[in-house]
């Protein structure tokens, strides 16, 4: 790591859609190797935060730095955003997995994984194939390499999507409600893959409603509401004695629902 700076530094980030402020003065730091779980009601800005980190959304104010690279810079004050080169550098460092998998349906699992290494990194086909096979083994899909995504279950698709993101060897993995679209019995296999990844030291930012995962894997849990970070605490603390009333209310509603299942 460069001069002890955290891997991710978000400084005074403001994001608006038209006149609606979706992210309001977000400050966030994350050290390499840490797992940060972001929770909060829908519409609280969790997913938008991830999308800003992946440079999928322009921001209005503040800065985002990932591994020393300027990922985004608000242009509210007339300052230019990051140039093409730094956007490219950023996308080299960030991997993202989506709620809806977003595998390329016309390509096999193998082709999904090798496309970016070959086209972006200029990797030789054999090298890319070897990398893909290795990743597929890690996510337990080595027998699905020549299958198209439609033939896979949701859980398998999501694991393939994780392998695809890992193929670019990112410094940070962003997970945007990756189990929300899955049938309940398929959630476990995806979470297991994510757990393994965390154990291997991957820096992860995870938006999820899976409180069990947050409890076991997160170094810190962030609670967001109305576009603001309300509270950041280690999981043991936030689940036992949340500092903020809003956090407590949210967790109570969530646990009530979980108890009812």
């Amino acid at each position: 790591m460069t001069n002890g700076e955290p891997l991710i530094v978000v400084d005074k980030l403001v994001k608006r859609y038209g006149s609606a402020t979706v992210l309001d003065d977000i400050n966030l730091e994350l050290d390499a190797g840490q797992v940060l779980v972001v929770i909060g009601p829908s519409g609280s800005g969790k997913s938008t935060l991830l999308r800003c980190l992946a440079a999928l959304e322009p921001i209005q104010q503040g800065t985002i730095r990932i591994d020393g690279t300027l990922a985004a810079k608000g242009d509210g004050a007339g300052v230019p955003g990051p140039d093409r080169a730094s956007l490219k550098a950023l996308r080299d460092k960030v991997g993202m997995v989506f709620q809806s998998f977003n595998l390329f349906p016309h390509l096999t699992v193998m082709e999904n994984i090798t496309l970016a290494p070959r086209r972006v990194r200029g990797m030789a086909p054999q090298e890319a194939d070897a990398l893909a096979i290795d990743l597929l083994r890690r996510v337990g899909l080595e027998d699905k390499r020549d299958v198209h995504p439609e033939r896979l279950s949701g859980g398998q698709q999501q694991r393939a999507a994780i392998a695809r993101a890992l193929a670019m060897n990112p410094r940070v993995m962003l997970f945007d409600e990756v189990t929300s679209a899955l049938d309940p019995e398929l959630v476990g296999e995806v979470l297991r893959t994510m757990r393994q990844l965390a154990e291997q030291g991957m820096t992860m930012l995870v938006v999820t409603h899976e409180m069990g995962f947050a409890r076991d894997v997160a170094d810190d849990v962030v609670f967001m509401d109305n576009g603001q970070i309300i509270e950041r605490s280690p999981p043991a603390q936030i689940f036992a004695q949340p500092k903020e009333a809003r956090t407590r209310a949210f967790l109570e509603r969530l646990l009530e629902r979980e108890g009812g299942r």
Binding site: A54, F98, L103, F104
Partner: peptide, 21 residues
């Protein structure tokens, strides 16, 4: 639209995104 986003996050440029995705 999410296909564009997936390609973008993987670092594919516009030409490759169109051609391969």
């Amino acid at each position: 639209r999410t296909q564009w986003q997936a390609a973008r996050v993987l670092g594919l440029d516009l030409k490759d995104t169109l051609r391969f995705v």
